[in-house]
Design a protein around this nucleic acid. Structure first.
Length: 477
RNA sequence: CGGGGUGUAGCGCAGUUCGGCAGCGCACCGCGUUUGGGACGCGGGGGUCGCCGGUUCGAGUCCGGCCGCCCCGACCA
């Protein structure tokens, strides 16, 4: 239940975010530091994200499975870069059933190792390939600083793990799944993303190449919203994932992994939210439409509720909620559902019953601007059109915001200035020293080398060396 | 782990200076009036004042120790 205004985004963005997550009942703090409880409203949003992704995974030939939460410590140590990347943030179980374990068990931070181990058992022949498996799971990474959804010790995600006969096929899979993420983010989340390649420094521990979709949040910081990794033969060699090719020669597989987590909920909140609260894209919103009945007396109540029942029946294919609470006023309900981000509100009062109409109020256009009076006929169609309009306009608005805050600095001084308040798209020679200098001077990091390049060549924004690619620099979550 | 802040009802806070009945607003429960942008009246319920110890006739308040959480940094999906 909300009773007062949120902190303003412009005054304290992170306080706005923290308050909103809790007040909208998406999540709450758990008794363990850094852990969260995903509440029913937040989980319902996650379920819609899961469905949207799972549908796409199935459509691209993947199947789901479940691998264990515990991984033998020695597994993590088999791939050098992997263990170096993850060892600082591992949760380790050393006692089980009251006995000290012979070998400590790691609570999975990600499952490349245990899945690699299983793949080595399952894969014998080129006829077994490709293996295209996904799992929906929770993982644990012992982070220093945590934020609800954005970075918690335990989080929920999906991780796809595939094995292929050739490098080309694995690379194609890596890119294909990044495209799946981008399609999901843009079309279902209405979150505009930039697809690209991670720098050496930013790539996944154990990957040959990492690809990412990067989004701009409402405070102009970047959020890595999904990643896809080409693992080469690194894990295949560490876990002996081998197959016999058609010429009866033993070959190592080429593997990939890709993941998208509950962090994406944070992306939705910070891409679309405003000072009134959440703004959810219709395709993912747990509640797409809320009906608020309005009446003054018993006579009106009966008439209005009869109309509400008819409308509810007509709109049964939508995720719809009737707010028939009697203990709060309509005005309170308006604010309450706006805070929760419901895309479309339908008000039905005595005047509407009389005129055979209803009132629409768009969440993405607060106040009078978002209100319209709509005839009752063909209502389902009108609602569907309105939800689509909202879905589209959310994406357009977010895209316009990102464009307005993406700069192309001409020199280093300008780069340092623009990353204080947006993205910088600039030539980069690819050297880690230049990347590190920017980070040291500004705290901004390279987010990705976008696939979409202007072409040609330029001079590295840091050192002036000839460069063939431009990179996004930004402060990131 | 360093720097800063904070801990009193579900939430937000006052009270701590100068020790003397545990308070306010919102939320919650009951009754009535209300209801097209955060209603109102009356009546209620709810507390290990973060924890442990000390001083005192008496501690939310003073002293010592410990803990949690938040913000800023180093690390990260």
């Amino acid at each position: 239940m909300s009773d007062e205004k949120l902190p303003l985004r412009s005054e304290n963005y992170s306080e706005w975010y923290n308050t909103l997550v809790q007040r909208a009942e998406l999540a709450d703090y758990a008794p363990v530091r850094g852990c969260m409880v995903v509440r029913p409203y937040g989980w319902s949003l996650w379920e819609n994200i899961q469905q949207a992704l799972d549908r796409r995974f199935k459509a691209t030939g993947h199947v789901n499975a479940a691998f264990p939460l515990f991984i033998p410590m020695s597994f993590l140590e088999k791939e050098k870069a992997h263990v170096e990347g993850f060892s600082p943030e591992l949760a380790v179980v050393t006692i089980g059933g009251g006995e000290t374990l012979e070998e400590p068990l790691v609570v999975r931070p990600t499952s490349e190792t245990v899945i690699g181990y299983m793949y080595s058992k399952w894969i014998k022949s080129y006829r077994d390939l490709p293996v295209l498996i996904n799992q929906w799971a929770n993982v644990v990474r012992w982070e220093m600083r945590t934020r609800l959804f954005l970075r918690t010790l335990e989080f929920f995600w999906q991780e796809g793990h595939t094995a292929h006969a050739t490098s080309e096929e694995a690379e194609a899979e890596t890119r294909r799944m990044l495209d799946v993420y981008a399609d999901f983010a843009i079309n279902d989340g209405a979150v505009p993303v930039i697809s690209g390649r991670k720098s050496e420094k930013e790539k996944f521990a154990g990957a040959v190449n990492s690809y990412t979709i990067e989004a701009m949040m409402g405070d102009k910081r970047a959020l890595q919203s999904g990643t896809s990794h080409f693992l080469g033969q690194n894990f295949a060699k560490a876990f002996n994932i081998q197959y016999l090719d058609p010429t009866n020669t033993l070959q190592y597989c080429w593997t990939t992994s890709w993941g998208l987590s509950t962090r994406f909920i944070g992306a939705i909140i910070m891409t679309h939210g405003d000072d009134q609260g959440l703004v959810l894209p219709p395709k993912l919103a747990p509640i797409q439409i809320v009906i608020v009945p309005i009446y003054k007396n018993e006579d009106e109540r009966v008439k209005v509720m009869t109309a509400v029942a008819a409308v509810t029946e007509e709109l049964k294919d939508f995720r719809l909620k009737v707010d028939d609470r009697q203990e709060v006023t309509p005005g309170f309900k308006f604010n309450d559902w706006e805070m929760r981000g419901v895309p479309l509100r339908i008000e039905i009062g005595p005047k509407d019953v009389e005129k055979g109409s209803v009132a629409f109020a768009r969440r993405d256009a607060p106040g009078r601007a978002g209100k319209s009076f709509v005839p009752r006929d063909r209502l389902a169609q009108r609602v569907a059109e309105m939800l689509q309009t909202i879905q589209t306009s959310l994406h357009e608005k977010a895209l316009a915001f990102r464009k307005a805050n993406t700069h192309e600095p001409g020199d280093y001084a300008e780069l340092c200035q623009v990353v204080e308040d947006g993205f910088a798209f600039a030539w980069w020679c690819g050297r880690a020293e230049c990347e590190a200098k920017v980070k040291e001077d500004t705290k901004a990091t390279t987010r990705c080398i976008p696939f979409e390049q202007p072409g040609g060549e330029g001079k590295c924004i840091v050192c002036g060396a000839q460069s063939s690619e431009k990179v996004i620099f930004a402060k990131a979550y």
